[in-house]
Design a protein around this nucleic acid. Structure first.
Length: 300
DNA sequence: GGCCAGGTCCAAT
DNA sequence: ATTGGACATGGC
């Protein structure tokens, strides 16, 4: 028997399908999700969010229903372009993932793509994870660090060069590294994450954003890089560090939300971005009630 | 076939 | 501090 919650400013589909989380599938409008020890089904009809098998508090937590999305949107709505992106994917929220699962997933994501990441992560769950019932079928939890296979076994699952990273990450997680990070300020959390082999700037930022609630983190991947250069850097290539610095300042404390909306937009509308030309930042700073003065790298 | 994929690491400037 | 290649595998 499903329970339900009344939700506003929430879009389940956008949220799950935006590429931040991989452990879901969809059949007849119903999503089946496994996060940590919880496996559940969830679907949305307008402002009603239906779910099974888990407490309401978990649903509210995992889907970040406590985030004040209108306030977040207001804060990152710095220009007409962002306004349009926000409108198009309204209701997309950043999830609260399990730190270990998120770390493993984004180490797996290195030089890969969403279909393959999803398959790799499912393979690891099937090979090493615990079996749990869900809606008459069986699901597999993602393995805890102790349950992860060795490098050899991971290579057999076609993880390639990521196999060694994953094995080392599991070892460090087992030693408690990820537990220390909760509660650290974001810079220190980032440095600590980067101790893990296979975790450098980009993956660390993903974990900060998707698991530790550092909503100002701004992961720069190939899509975000292309989109940011095209839209905010006049098409002139620049470094990931400059893109990140600019975004953190331009979008402010919820830059990570801007990143996820941008990522979704860039993936689904690349042609549109290519055709649109770069964004005129002077008009952005001149918009009433918005962002009085921002530093714009490369533009006097 | 070659190139690129939600990058990172290491060596050589 | 920055830059080029290697790293496994898969899809176009």
């Amino acid at each position: 028997m499903p329970q339900h919650l009344t939700v506003r400013d929430f879009d389940l589909g956008c949220t799950l399908e935006s590429g931040q989380f991989f452990r879901w599938d969809k059949a007849d409008g119903v999503y089946r999700v496994t996060r940590g020890e919880f496996t559940f089904r969830v679907w949305q009809e307008g402002e009603r969010l239906y779910y099974t098998d888990v407490p309401a508090a978990f649903i509210r937590y995992f889907f970040s229903l406590d985030h004040d999305l209108p306030a977040v949107a207001c804060s990152i709505d710095r220009d007409p372009f962002m306004r349009e992106v926000l409108r198009r994917y309204w209701g997309l929220r950043l999830l609260r993932q399990d730190p270990w699962e998120c770390t493993a997933a984004f180490v797996t994501s290195i030089a890969s793509n969403i279909p393959r990441i999803t398959r790799n992560v499912e393979d690891m769950a099937r090979a090493f994870g615990r079996e749990v019932p869900c809606g008459g079928q069986v699901a597999r939890q993602f393995p805890r660090p102790v349950q992860m296979g060795g490098e050899r076994e991971l290579r057999r699952l076609r993880l390639g060069f990521r196999a060694r990273y994953l094995h080392d990450a599991a070892r460090l997680a087992q030693a408690g590294l990820l537990d220390e990070i909760a509660g650290l300020p974001s810079h220190e959390a980032r440095e600590t994450l980067m101790v893990i082999p296979g975790v450098a700037e980009k993956v660390a930022d993903c974990v900060l954003l998707f698991a530790y609630g550092h909503l100002g983190a701004f992961p720069v991947d190939t899509w975000i890089r292309k989109a940011m250069i095209r839209i905010y850097f006049g098409g002139r290539p620049t470094t990931d560090l400059r893109i990140r610095r600019f975004a953190e300042q331009y979008f402010g404390r919820y830059a990570g939300y801007a990143q996820q909306y941008l990522y979704m937009y860039a993936r689904q509308n690349w042609e549109e971005i290519e055709g649109r030309g770069s964004f005129d930042r002077d008009s952005a700073t001149a918009m009433p009630g918005i962002n009085p003065r921002v530093a714009v790298p490369g533009v006097p």
